[in-house]
């Protein structure tokens, strides 16, 4: 495995909608500062934002680990939450178990996981019901 040039760890608090999205903003600032191509940054930001939202919406707490190698950006999002019983199904566009009040906030369209997958070069979900979920995403860059 290639050397990790940079690593940042972030905490995400479940159900704290006030702060939701802040980690993605920080990651964006880091990548901009590094002069990473803006199209790549946008993909990373979409993935981290959707992941952050899912932790906020479904879990009690979680972490986002950002790692940079000479060719890739790796995001690992782990949470302590209910887990996903059927990952295939969760990955379908439009599938959502989000309650109505989330939908009123403009979330819960079942587009998060599909968008994350679409914006990643490699995407993997590990989940144990009643324990938690870990999402790995790799986005290649050529900076």
């Amino acid at each position: 495995m290639a050397d990790i040039l940079m690593r940042h760890d972030f905490d995400v608090q479940g159900r704290n909608f006030d702060k939701a999205g802040e980690v993605s903003s920080e990651i964006k600032v880091i990548l901009k500062g590094l002069g990473i191509d803006s199209k790549i940054i946008r993909r990373v930001v979409v993935v981290s934002f959707e992941a952050e939202m899912n932790v906020t919406m479904y879990a009690d707490k979680g972490t986002i680990v950002f790692e940079l190698t000479d060719r890739n950006i790796l995001l690992t999002i782990s949470d302590e939450g209910p887990g996903i019983p059927d990952i295939e199904q969760a990955l379908q566009e439009g599938y959502s178990t989000a309650p109505d009040e989330m939908r009123e906030l403009g979330f819960g369209f079942g587009m998060g996981l599909p968008n994350m997958k679409k914006n990643s070069d490699e995407f993997e979900i590990d989940s144990v019901v009643a324990r938690g979920t870990t999402v790995h995403a790799r986005i290649g860059h050529n900076a």
């Binding site: 040039l5 880091i30 500062g33 590094l34």
Partner: peptide, 22 residues
């Protein structure tokens, strides 16, 4: 078109070092 900015000097390792230095 996006404006080209001259802030991405050096290779990635140098830029990481610069950010860490900052």
């Amino acid at each position: 078109k996006p404006r080209e900015l001259n802030d991405a000097a050096g290779n990635l390792i140098e830029r990481v070092k610069k950010q860490q230095h900052a």
